[in-house]
Structures are given as C-alpha cells and as structure tokens.
Design a protein around this nucleic acid. Structure first.
Length: 745
DNA sequence: CCCGTCGTTATTTTT
DNA sequence: TAACGACGGG
C-alpha cells in the first residue's frame, strides 16, 4: 500500500459505493445511517470526517465523534487522521471518555472532584455495602447493579420511574445513600460519566451554549447500543430542541442491538427520526464480508423480528458454500465434531486462527477447552479473565487512585492493610468516619491519609503504627508525582508502588504457592505506564485510560495461530473465515422462556453470530446436554426452523421437532465418524421397559404416565404426561436414572 | 491468618 | 457438574 497521508480526498471518495458516497456527502438535516454488518461503516464515518474538514471547511475541533469501545474509537481516529491529518484535532472518543473529559472540565458544576477516578461494578457494590450496612453482600451487589441500570436510564434517586428498574420499595433510599457516599469521595461510577454531564447541560444554559458553540458536528457510531442517558446527552449536546443547527449523524444497525440487559435501548435507533425531525435515512446494504449463502441465512433469521427498520444485505462476494447445520447426539459429539473439522482443515493448510467457536454462555467453553487441550489444538478464550480485574492489578491501581484522590474510600479500604499491618475493619471505619466528618477550611473533607495521622492516637498501638507507616508510604508516592518536570515516566511511579508498598513481594509469594503469574502482571502494568509522564496529570491520564478500557491487551495474541473460543456477545465487530455457532437448542439459545421482546434480542444475537462468518458457517445442535449436573433432552432451537427450508445443508440425525426433513436421507457426514452415540431405535431394549401407559415417578415432576414413545435422532424417546399437568420428553438411555418405574419401586 | 469443607447457585457485559 | 463464597478449625 502506498502512503495515504497526502492523497487527495477524491481518491478516498472513489473507493465508496453509491450509498456510502451519499452518506458522506449528505448535509442539511439529521442523518441516520443504517449500516448492515460488514457494510464498511467505519470507512464512511472516517471519510465523512475528512470530507467535512477538506471540502466543507468545518473546523476539525468542532467535530465530535463518539463510539462505545476504546478499540473502535482508536481505529476511527487513526483512520481519519490518515485521510486528513487535521482530524487529529477532532474529538474522537468513547462516550464515557467524552463524559470524563466533560466532567473534569465542569467538575464543580457536577459536584465531583476534578481528580476523580471511576469506580467499577465491584467498587460500587462495596460502596453500597458501606452506605447501607444492613445489606448482605449479595443484596449490595444486586442493588449496585440496579443503580447502574437506573443511571443508564438517567433516573435520579427521587425519580418515580425507579419502580420500573427495581420493585423493592427500599431501593430509592439505598440509591440515595449510595449517591451521598459517592459524592463524599468525589469519585464517580460509569453511569455518572454520562448522566452527570446530562444533568449539568440540562440545568446550566451557559455550559450548554459553550458546547453548542464548540461542537458543530456530532457523529455517533454503534448507535443501536446507546442507552437512554446517552440519547439525552446527544440531545443536549446537539441542542436539537433549540435549533442550534448542529449537524447530527448517527450510524448503527438495529439488527445488531444485543445489549438491552445493560441498558441499551433499541428504541433509540428505531425512533431516532421522531426526535430529530427531518432526518434522512440511508441504508448501507452492500456487504463486503460474507458470501451470499451466509447472508441469506442471516436474513432468513432476522426477518422474523417485528421490531426493526428493515434492510437486506447484498453480497459483493460470490455465492459461496452452503452453511451447514449439524444435529449431534451429545455435547461431547459437538466438541469432537468441531475438533474434527478444525483438524481436517488444518491438515489441508488452513490455519487455526481462521476458526472461531461461538457459544451463548461462557460455561460452554469448558468442553471445547478440554477437548482441544487433549487434541493439542491451540485455542484462545476471549473475554474470560480481564487484566484489570485481577486482584494484584486492582491493588496496584488502588494505590495510584488514592494518590490521585486522597478521599477515595474504596481504594483506601482496599490497600490500607495490604500487606497486613494490623489495621482491621474497625480501625478503617474510624479513619473513614473521621475523614468524612472533619471538614478542612474550604469545607471539603480531610483526606484519608491525613486522617490516618490525625487518628493514630485513638487507635490501638498496632493499628497506630500501621496507619503511620501507611501514611508515610502514601506521602512518598504523592511526592513522586508532585515534581512537575522530572524526566521520568510514570513507570517509575508504578514501580515504586510495587516495591515500596510491598505488594510485589506479597504477590510474588502468592505466585510461589499457587503457580500464578501475578508478579508478571504487575510488571506488565509497570511497562504500560511508560507512555505517561511522571506527573500528577500523567497519573490522571493513565488512570483514565485504564478505567475506560478494561479489556486485555494481549500483545502476542495477534500473531499466534489459535482457534478463537468466544461468546456470541463478544464477537460483535469481529470476523472470521470459518465460524461454528454451537448449542442451538431451546433453553440454551434462545435462553429459557423469553418474552417476545427478549426473544427478538436473542434472534439478533444469532444474526450477529452468523454475519461474523466470511467463508464457512457451521451450526450445531445437540439432542442431549448435561445441564447443572442433569442430563437434559434438548429441543432444537426455534431459530433453526424459522430459518426455513433450503438455507442450510443439514447433517446428522434430524429431530422431528426441527420442521424440515433432510433432502437426502443418506447424507453421511463427510467428516465421518462423529455420530458415536447413535443406535437403532427398533432394537433398543429400553423400548420394552418404557411402554405406553407405564407409570413413572420423577423427582422434579412427580407421577405421570408414558403417553407416547418414538425415535428422535436415532434415540428412543418417551413422552410423559405428569399429574401436575406438564408433559415432558425423556431419553431413557441418558435419563433412566431419574425416571423411576412404579413397578420397580 | 490460612486452609479445608460444606452449601449454594448456575446468562449475555462495550465503559 | 463445577465453581465460588461462607464459615469454622488449626
């Protein structure tokens, strides 16, 4: 590729298709770009930024572009700058990082400390527990979760609508107590990063004007994932109700909205045109990623949804091979089938990294891990353990956070006694209480480090020595970043934390006994700070970058050749040449009995999974699955039948519950030999045991009669009508142990 | 303070 | 089934 930095804009425009070009050049009204999977939306946004700067004389700094993930923001910024270097002055950030920027700037108006750090879910739960001590740990974390959700919907503690989030009548008070406690620390949680700016903008006309003056163009990517608070932020920033003339452009795909449980509101995109009058809608329907038959499968699934704006992807690539749907007897056959596929392809030269195994729940990765380990197939599990959630890292960062903000109660409690200095919970309570009830001259609470020193005489001898030692450590750390212009990087500060506090030693000792690599992780954290100066501001920037991006940056993951094991949710934005979507069974995917709205979201999740595949797509479903220690008979996912006939090439023993017969009954699996569990039904001796009319007792369902027998996937299956009214199907072969026949009792 | 045992509980998780 | 948290003994 030749250097692009000085290429004329025209060259970039020439790369666009007709719809993309229209989206880039559109002006004069709000714009909603419905961008299907793989339709090149990032290219459109970045080109649009460059176009506005180069052709429309829009000042770069007056362009605001927000996304949801740091990865996406980074990519967008890089690509925009590549097209026009002036884009470096544009504000291209995640929603949350924009919120943090805003809040530091207007900290006083928002009632927070400009040096705030961001509390994560864990910290929230701890703080709820401290604010309302009567709550159990579990209740506290449940309440914390609901508080997050409330903030996603922009609901304050006194909002009557809280009842829609949590029916517990005590909840508003818990929320209020938590808020009180949080404001004392001066810190914020993730929800605040969006909600507080909204509140500031809503009640302060001057600040609102300032923002309107600053930002003339606002673009939002992945708009289908926005929550109510983010919608309100967009509303306030753009001043759409005040006719500021700010140009608003949102890009998203309603069919890929899969985060409702976290507050994402599909209605934002579905009703965008109502809130932004005169909106023009442009659909990007040309798909550059997948072959046509894969797209047909995706469409056949998602068109069963009612609540969507509707679009049809057109494949730019060829027709491609048929997606394959495989019915397997058990989950062990499923893992074996996947391993066979991968091994066979690998023997023909296909790298492991071309493959991704997708599943609905993390727990499903286990079977694949075991099998792959056994067969020596290299794999990488995405999203399980997060770097910044590790204990040693949280400890390190707590010291850093407390240095930045000495009122950070959560950080203080986390590390004041780590490694142990004889400062128990009671001593901690005393210091915290003293800090919160002893205002300094300017009315702010006295810092916790200072409180340590002032409380020492009231504590036990052991604790007093401990807090003085702790205060001395904190003083040294504070001094370390106080010098405004030392040549050092922040690494030296982080390193000082590791050594001076004893954390490195403490965690190294842990490594010895439990074979972990905490010391290595700490070293990695030290290395990652090298990009920041060893100053107070450097520290704040470092903490910001971490709080707002908690994903693992595994450097050697890129060039390693391994199969990806990943939840469907985590695949968004990714693509793989060969994809297997596993566990297409009722109760697993879609999960349990979902309301129709939730069912639509599950369907979108399936759609997201399918559209990850570039060349080959396999879908598996098992007849029997071990679930919570029980062996359950599974029905094929309703999504499979919904897809309709002719979409998949069907292999394996087709359950009758899947509404379509295999075209060619002799279809054996080319891969061969995975149908290990199948036996002929007619010769099954179990058929004699469980005849129609046999009286059965089941631990969970009580008494009932066998009302039907039959064969599914080559297995003998019975239907039992229980006296409690429910009817269930069982495979005696696997479930015989839980089916008692009355005669034998 | 650490370690073992028992009992409980089972989604998805950008920031 | 298995993993994790709570609790009690050494």
């Amino acid at each position: 590729m030749e250097p692009a930095a000085f290429s004329p804009l025209d060259r970039y425009l020439s790369l666009l298709n007709e719809e993309q070009l229209a989206a880039v050049k559109h002006e004069g009204s709000p714009l909603l770009i419905l961008a299907g999977a793989g339709s090149g939306k990032t290219r459109v946004i970045t080109t649009k930024i460059a176009y506005l700067i180069a052709e429309k004389n829009v000042a770069p700094y007056s362009i605001l572009a927000v996304t949801f993930t740091k990865k996406a923001a980074k990519e967008m910024a890089e690509r925009a700058v590549l097209m026009d270097s002036r884009a470096a002055q544009s504000v291209i950030r995640t929603f949350h990082s924009f919120g943090a920027w805003f809040l530091r700037r207007f900290a006083e108006d928002a009632g927070v400390d400009p040096n705030f750090t961001v509390y994560d879910d864990d910290d929230m739960a701890t703080l709820v527990g401290k604010a309302v001590p009567s709550l159990s740990r579990q209740e506290a974390s449940h309440a914390a979760h609901k508080i997050s959700l409330a903030k996603d919907y922009c609901l304050a503690p006194d909002s009557p609508d809280l009842i829609t989030i949590e029916s517990n009548p005590d909840f508003p008070q818990i929320y209020a107590e938590y808020e009180k406690r949080l404001r004392v620390t001066g810190n914020v949680d993730f929800g605040d990063l969006i909600m507080l700016p909204v509140l500031v903008l809503q009640r302060n006309e001057e600040i609102r004007r300032q923002m309107h003056y600053r930002f003339k163009v606002i673009m939002v990517d992945e708009y289908q994932d926005s929550n109510v608070a983010q919608f309100k932020l967009l509303q306030a920033l753009s001043g759409v109700e005040e006719n500021t003339g700010t140009y608003v452009c949102v890009v998203g795909d309603d069919d890929q909205s899969i985060y409702k449980f976290r507050g994402a509101e599909v209605q934002n995109i579905l009703t965008f045109q109502n809130h932004f009058p005169g909106t023009q809608l442009i659909r990007l329907e040309q798909n550059y990623r997948s072959t046509a038959r894969i797209l047909a499968a995706a469409d056949s699934v998602v068109r069963n949804n009612e609540d969507r704006l509707g679009k049809t992807l057109r494949a730019v690539r060829g027709k491609g091979g048929e997606p394959v749907l495989v019915f397997l007897p058990t989950q062990d056959d499923e893992t074996a089938f996947c391993a066979d596929l991968i091994e066979k392809a690998h023997a023909k030269g296909c790298p492991y990294k071309d493959w991704a195994i997708l599943y609905r729940t993390n727990a499903q990765s286990l079977g694949f891990e075991t099998e792959f380990l056994h067969r020596k197939i290299p794999y990488t599990v995405v999203g399980s353990l997060k770097f910044y959630d590790r204990e040693e890292i949280k400890d390190m960062l707590a010291f850093a956070a407390l240095t930045a903000n000495p009122r950070d109660e959560i950080a203080f409690r986390r590390i004041v006694n780590k490694p142990t200095k004889g400062i128990g919970g009671k001593s901690q309570d005393m210091v915290v209480l003293y800090s919160q009830t002893t205002p300094t001259l300017d009315g702010a609470p006295v810092g916790l480090v200072q409180a340590c020193r002032e409380c020492a005489k009231q504590l036990s001898k052991k604790a007093a020595t401990g807090v003085m030692e702790f205060a001395a450590i904190m003083d040294e750390l504070t001094a370390c970043v106080a010098a405004e212009k030392s040549g050092d990087t922040l690494s030296s500060f982080i390193e000082k934390i590791a050594n001076r506090t004893g954390l490195l030693e403490y965690h190294s000792a842990q490594d010895e006994v439990s074979g972990t690599q905490r010391a290595g992780n700490i070293q990695e954290l030290i290395n990652s700070a090298v990009l920041y100066p060893c100053t107070r501001q450097g520290l704040l920037d470092f903490l910001d970058s971490i709080e707002l991006d908690r994903t693992i940056e595994n450097p050697d993951q890129e060039d390693t050749d391994s199969v990806t094991l990943i939840t469907l949710h985590n695949t968004k934005g990714l693509e793989f040449p060969r994809v297997v979507i596993t566990g297409l069974e009722e109760g697993i995917f879609p999960r349990q009995d979902k309301s129709s709205e939730e069912l639509e979201e599950e369907r979108r999740l399936f759609y997201v999974g399918i559209t990850r595949a570039q060349d080959e797509l396999y879908i598996t479903a098992c007849t029997v699955r071990r679930l919570y220690g029980r062996t359950e008979y599974m029905q094929p996912s309703r999504f499979l039948a919904e897809a309709g006939k002719g979409i998949f090439k069907v292999l394996g023993n087709v359950p009758s519950a899947y509404g379509y017969a295999v075209g060619d009954s002799g279809s054996s699996l080319g891969a061969g030999g995975f149908g290990t569990g199948s036996i002929g039904a007619q010769t099954d001796p179990l058929a004699k045991k469980y005849k129609k009319g046999t009286r059965i007792y089941h631990d969970d369902y009580g008494y009932g009669y066998v009302v039907a027998t039959g064969s599914r996937s080559g297995e003998f299956v019975i239907t039992v009508q229980f006296e409690n009214g429910s009817a269930k199907q069982f495979l005696p072969k696997y479930q015989g142990h839980s089916l008692m026949i009355e005669d034998e009792m």
